[in-house]
């Protein structure tokens, strides 16, 4: 009962991931897919935060920091590539 708010927000986050996945599969152009990937990454960062809170381990947040950094690099590199600059 204590954690019901957390479960509601986990449900919302799962719905967000699902919507991003639909756009990722459907998206007509490459940019659509990369945008969907970016949105899913931010959602997973929040998800890692929720999991760290639930299992009471602050060390998991370091994973989130590194994951966010790698995803930022990935998005920028893919964007440069499809623009023809790489």
């Amino acid at each position: 009962m204590d954690n019901i708010v957390i479960y509601i927000s986990i449900a919302m986050l799962m719905a967000t991931l699902l919507a991003g996945l639909i756009r990722f599969v459907k998206g007509p152009s490459v940019v659509d897919r990369v945008v969907a990937f970016d949105s899913m990454t931010v959602t997973s960062l929040v998800m890692i935060g929720v999991i760290a809170f639930l299992s009471n381990r602050a060390i998991y947040l370091d994973v989130a920091v590194v994951y966010g950094f790698l995803s930022f690099l990935g998005v920028v590199i893919v964007a440069k590539y499809i623009q023809g600059g790489l």
Partner: peptide, 17 residues
């Protein structure tokens, strides 16, 4: 705050669709 944040993320995904 957590609920508002998750709702905002959900709105972003609906906008994406």
């Amino acid at each position: 705050f957590l609920l508002m944040g998750s709702f905002s993320l959900l709105t972003a995904a609906i906008g994406l669709l």
